[in-house]
Computed example of a mutant assay.
Amino acid sequence: MEKTAVLIFDAAQRSALATTRALGKRSDIQVFTTDRHKQALAGCSRYSHQYLTCPNPSDDTQKFLNWVNDTVIKYEIDFLLPVTEVTSRTLVQHRDALPPCKLPFADIDTLLSLSDKSALNHLAESLGVPVPFSQYCQRASDIDHDAISFPCVLKPALSKVLVDNQWLETQVHIVHNAAQLQQLTEDKVYFNNHPFMVQQYIDGHGAGVFCYYQKGEAKAFFAHKRLREKPPSGGVSVLSASAPINPDMEKHARALLDAVNWHGVAMVEFRVSADGTPYLMEINTRLWGSLQLAIDAGVSFPELLFDGEYKTLERHRGFKEGVQLRWLLGDVDNLYLQLKDKNLSTSEKLNAVGTFLTPKFSNRRHEINRMDDMGPFWFELKHYL
């Protein structure tokens, strides 16, 4: 049986490992993995046929594109699947310069209409999707200081910007006073040369909806809740569980993705206020960190992306709720940070230890360490130690 050659980028990411396993298990696919490192997490998987080292797209876009062009021809690659923003935007923007191969993303203008947070906010307002009160600025001098209530959020329109053929990473900042606002706008170049917003701070918790669309039609939705994070105050999920989809969030996600005739995956992120209102934060137009949980619960987004480029798909029907996913070494970090936190009492620290050690024998899987594919775990453990 002839196999379709798939090149999965950003192999150091956990989402790339989940993608490699999901596609590499299929008899009709041969997976190649790549990243800028000599070896990477997904490249250690038994489901990666071959690992290739590529130039860093953040350092030199053209060198990276030349490498992709040569690699596609040399290995007869049929399908490209990036999992980070820089790689996906680079490939989508230069799609026409690459040899013929599948790339499961919308065109660059559509992609930017969602990944550009300022443009997305305007779209959401026109559709009646709740957004925080926002000022739209091109430079620091555009800020209306009289209209600001602290704390506020200083949010660049794009999380990555291309400057002189190199990618510059921006950052969202929570600002507590006028002096901090002035300092940030003076210190960070992306607040003077690129669009940004000054937004109302929404006191609440984060939540999201994960989606797959095929040529403007909704095909699959998924949701989860975070049980533990690193750092514990909020960050990367280290223990999560599949959960029912909030109907308001799904409605808002549909409105936004329908409006741009979306194609591909999207993670629509909200912040839910105390009164239960979900305020739109951003949309990530790529695969996400906790991807393995969706796959374990019954929604294999990598396979939807692959199959959706070759045939019309049926609407995916549901998923199993209550499935847990644990990133073991990330959870170790969570425990360590709690134990060294001087603001936690001894009883709270003992509770954290007990919670960490309590086994769960059903509906929980580990993200990296899997008995049928332990190579990535040994690689991660070596670097962790």
Rank of each mutant, 00 (worst) to 15 (best):
D10M: 09
R14A: 12
A16W: 01
L17K: 05
R36N: 11
K38Q: 09
A40W: 01
C44K: 09
S45R: 07
Q50E: 11
P55V: 03
N56G: 02
K63C: 03
F64E: 08
D70N: 12
E76D: 14
F79Q: 05
V83F: 03
E85T: 15
V86M: 07
S88I: 09
V92F: 10
Q93V: 01
P100Y: 10
A106N: 12
A106W: 04
D107M: 08
I108D: 11
L111F: 10
L112Y: 07
L114G: 09
K117V: 10
H122P: 00
S126N: 10
L127C: 11
V129G: 12
V131N: 01
Y136M: 12
D144F: 02
P151K: 04
N165C: 11
V172A: 13
H173S: 14
I174L: 12
I174H: 04
V175W: 11
H176K: 14
Q182C: 08
Q182H: 14
L184P: 09
V189I: 15
Q199D: 11
G208E: 08
F210V: 00
Y213F: 15
F221M: 06
S233C: 05
S233D: 07
A243F: 13
M249T: 05
K251F: 11
N261R: 08
W262M: 05
V268G: 04
V268D: 01
F270I: 00
R271P: 01
Y279K: 04
L287E: 04
L293V: 09
L293C: 05
L293N: 07
A294Q: 00
A294S: 15
I295A: 11
A297F: 05
L304Y: 04
D307Y: 04
K311L: 11
T312M: 06
L313W: 06
R317T: 14
E321D: 11
G322V: 06
L325N: 01
R326D: 03
D331R: 00
D331V: 00
L337A: 03
S345G: 15
K349I: 03
L350S: 00
F356K: 07
T358M: 10
E367V: 04
N369D: 09
D373K: 09
D373S: 09
W378E: 06
L381Y: 13
Y384K: 11
